[in-house]
Write a protein that binds this DNA or RNA. Structure first.
Lengths: 148, 148
DNA sequence: CGTCCTGTAACTACAATGAATACAGGTAAT
DNA sequence: ATTACCTGTATTCATTGTAGTTACAGGACG
């Protein structure tokens, strides 16, 4: 099992729109950078738009960020692209046997653990913004240029 | 997307084997508590055995823990049942365009973030043992008895 | 030898992913 | 208004993972 690449693609899209803010970020342009089909990009853009992260209009080429760079966290993206339903990162087997000590208590014991783990994970993403990603990409670009 | 219930079933199995240590924990017995098919249980038991958490022998009914209760962490179980391949909790889109500033750097920017998130998640499970789970189940059982 | 067990393989149904194609409908320039 | 290009969306497809089921080979043991 792996969490869908919609998450990383979503980050890619938002980052590129920012870096290309003087140009036109059409789904085709973005698809060329991500290296996938424009329809896939449009679908993800639709999710980002629905979450209020992106401004796009039918018929008009290009998209722009709907919020300030530093106001978009990776958690926003994570939630937007719907890679994991709320509190369902881990699935718990259904209907354990209520006639067994373990069966009738295991769910209540495990659930809080799973929720904690999930929250911990999400907190990591809550503390990183698209601005951080943009800065890091410029950083990496600089290092590459020097090493040539 | 959800992480396979093999994880919660694995915890259930180990916990029940402990609590039923004076009895015989056959795959059929465990399956009745988990409420699934014995073959499913045997498959997961095979994984737990392979990871050195469980002692089982062909032909002999029952299984027992291969380690001390307090030496089996949930992370051991998590790794054992192979619900997430190493460092692949998040999938990153392949082959982004190297001719684009974002395309050629995004993977190196995102990967460390994903690894951090994954490690944070796993650390939660590293700090909980089967012993903790067993204790919590007895705790919950006590509370239930009182509320009757 | 018969019985019960574990270990596996094979098959099923089902859901999610990611890519691809197609097209309806919006926008705008000519 | 016609044309060209865009977004939004439905549909289809191949692939993969999950979870359950059945079946059976082979071990253990009375």
């Amino acid at each position: 099992m792996s969490i869908s690449s919609r998450f990383s693609v979503g980050i890619h899209i938002l980052t590129l729109i920012e870096i290309n803010k003087d140009g036109v970020s059409s789904s085709e342009y973005l698809a060329a950078s991500v290296n996938t089909n424009p329809a896939v990009i449009r679908k993800i853009m639709g999710m980002l738009k629905k979450a209020g992260l992106l401004k796009v209009q039918p018929g008009i080429a290009g998209a722009e960020l709907a919020k300030d760079l530093s106001d978009i966290t990776l958690l926003d993206v994570y939630k937007a692209v719907n890679v994991v339903k709320d509190n369902e990162l881990f699935s718990i087997h259904e209907n354990p046997n209520p006639d067994c000590t373990v069966g009738r208590n295991i769910q209540n014991t495990i659930e809080p653990l799973f929720f904690t783990a999930q929250n911990t994970l999400e907190n990591v993403f809550k503390n990183v913004t698209i601005e951080d990603v943009v800065k890091d990409i410029f950083e990496k670009e600089k290092v590459n240029a020097k090493s040539k």
